[in-house]
Design a protein around this nucleic acid. Structure first.
Length: 501
RNA sequence: GCGGAAGUAGCUCAUUUGGUAGAGCGACAGCCUUCCAAGCUGUAGGUAGCGGGUUCGAGACCCGUCUUCCGCUCCA
């Protein structure tokens, strides 16, 4: 673990040193868990997005893309459940310094009372023959007392939660004499609301301005456009809508570099299917998505599926593709069978029909949805972390090389005159001008050739094209491959065919 | 939010108990070099996170603050 911590630090520091990722607002002391993508980082990030977009939208005839606004109608977040489901009341115990969800503390308390009653029943069962459980429950004074308490606390609790009465929730906790499981004390802080969503005001005048939210997921932008896309795109089920975009979540702790940020980017695809066929398509997309990762050539041992036991309120199947980050296996991508929850909710809240007419079955229905959702930043970290390699070469020298999949590499080639004289720079410039129309290229004539190779290794450039004296005679160059460091000589006219991206 | 550790040049770090900041790497300019870092010369770059205090004197000691890392709480 210590080694991995060390590795992670090296990756972060390499990312800064070579211009992949900078801490945000660094000259003003930075912002916690906010990062800027720098000159190389933005290339890698864009390439990841493009690789995904091509695999989803370009390759699949029945998937189209959209780019919906970050601002959306506030009711969307009521419909999606985000307003209610993600306002957790939190409370701290001052002695143990532990933080709890206030509602969970009360639920646990209720559970204890239930357990108590169960025990009474068990006890009585052993004691009496011809035991009538129903009668016992209706007459035993202990059980009745507990049950009454459960009922009254439950209803008060529900009432308080409904009204978001934080003060009331705290007094209920005090009244019930709930203690911290760790410290055993009743020394509680006030209950505070934790809001998942960032809110802001739309409208230039503060009075009468509407509170709106920065979207916590891009998915809703797809759902609310479902009917528009279906109709204008002449889409037939099954079909998908893809989107790449920023999302914002007020995480309690945003940590681990770009793994968990409050502002992040998602690549999501919602696939609309006939009800009853969702599990088939869930399996289909599980397979498709892992194949996408596979196609990048990253060691499969770094991936694993993690099926959810506890499903979210809207899902009937869910799995994560986890990646072996330097800090362990963590969620990289989620594949969820979201049922018809979202579209049904939007139908209810908007009052608009969000149904698909299926000409094959002659039925109209709300489609079921399979979602694939991957974090761009997490993918970036996966690629960067997996690429980072320190090698000791045969001659005992060391090199740091980013073995980024060539298709994702910020620069595809570097054009290098072997020496900075004899007309080699001019020749190299010609090649540079030729190639830069096609791909990201870097020209470098400074320092010894070996040093320049190492520089390109450090930023993950897969190919170095070197111009030497022979190039002047027969128009050939050498192409050096990053990972193997092997070179081959090819005619300038065949450079493009010789590099695999 | 709490606890622990840390913050000196782009990076990694030094500065022996407080005496006025240094190295390596890197970058840049040039020299040398016909294929894999560490040859030569030169240049730039730090009000030591920030603010305050103690002191004749603070990078070092004290307080505050900000930021980062590790752990805990939460995570569709």
């Amino acid at each position: 673990m210590a080694n991995n911590d060390e590795l992670f630090k090296q990756i972060i520091s390499h990312a800064k040193e070579y211009g992949f990722i900078f801490p945000s607002s660094e000259i003003y002391d930075g912002m916690s868990a906010v990062y800027d993508y720098a000159q190389l980082g933005v290339e890698l990030k864009n390439n990841i997005k493009q690789y995904w977009w091509k695999a989803m939208v370009q390759y699949n005839e029945n998937i189209v893309g959209i780019d919906s606004a970050i601002f959306m109608h506030p009711t969307i977040w009521k419909a999606s459940g985000h307003v209610d489901a993600f306002n957790d009341p939190l409370i701290d115990n001052k002695d143990s310094k532990k933080r709890y969800r206030a509602d969970v503390l009360i639920e646990d308390y209720l559970q204890k009372l239930e357990d108590k009653n169960e025990k009474e029943v068990e006890k009585a069962k052993k004691k009496f023959e011809n035991f009538d459980e129903k009668l016992f429950k209706e007459t035993n004074p202990n059980i009745l007392r507990n049950q009454e308490k459960i009922n009254s606390v439950s209803s008060r609790f529900a009432e308080l939660m409904n009204q978001s009465d934080l003060v009331g929730i705290k007094s209920l906790i005090e009244e019930l004499e709930i203690v911290c499981p760790v410290s055993g004390s009743k020394n509680w802080t006030d209950v505070r609301q934790f809001n998942l969503m960032f809110s802001t005001q739309m409208g230039s005048v503060s009075e009468g301005a509407d509170t709106i939210y920065l979207r916590p997921e891009t998915a809703q932008g797809i759902f609310v456009n479902f009917i528009n896309v279906y109709k204008t795109g002449r889409m037939k089920i099954p079909f998908g809508i893809a989107q790449i975009g920023k999302a914002f979540r007020n995480e309690i702790v945003a940590r681990q570099f770009i793994f968990r940020m409050r502002e992040f980017e998602q690549m999501e695809m919602q696939f609309f299917v006939r009800p009853g066929e969702e599990i088939k398509w869930f399996e289909y997309w599980k397979n498709e998505r892992i194949n996408w990762h596979k196609s990048l050539g990253i060691d499969l041992a770094n991936y694993r599926f993690h099926d959810h036991d506890k499903l979210a309120h809207y899902a009937n199947a869910a799995t994560d593709i986890e990646f072996n980050f330097p800090f362990g296996f963590k969620e990289l991508e989620g594949i969820h069978s979201r049922t018809d929850y979202d579209l049904s909710q939007h139908e209810k809240f908007s009052g608009k029909k969000l149904r698909y007419f299926d000409p094959e079955t002659n039925e109209s229905y709300i489609p079921y949805v399979i979602e694939t959702s991957i974090g761009v930043d997490r993918m970036f970290l996966a690629v960067l972390g997996n690429s980072f390699t320190e090698e000791t070469l045969a001659d005992g020298s060391q090199r740091v090389v980013l073995k980024i999949p060539p298709v994702l590499a910020p620069y595809k080639v570097a054009v290098l005159p072997l020496v900075k004289k004899d007309g080699l720079p001019e020749k190299a410039r010609e090649i540079m001008d030729l190639l830069k129309m096609k791909m990201m290229c870097q020209y470098d004539e400074k320092d010894a050739i070996g040093r320049r190779y190492r520089r390109q290794d450090a930023i993950g450039t897969p190919y170095c094209i070197t111009v030497d004296n022979q190039s002047l005679e027969d128009n050939t160059v050498t192409i050096r491959e990053r990972d193997t460091m092997l070179q081959k000589r090819v005619p300038i006219s065949e450079i493009l065919q010789s590099i695999i991206l």
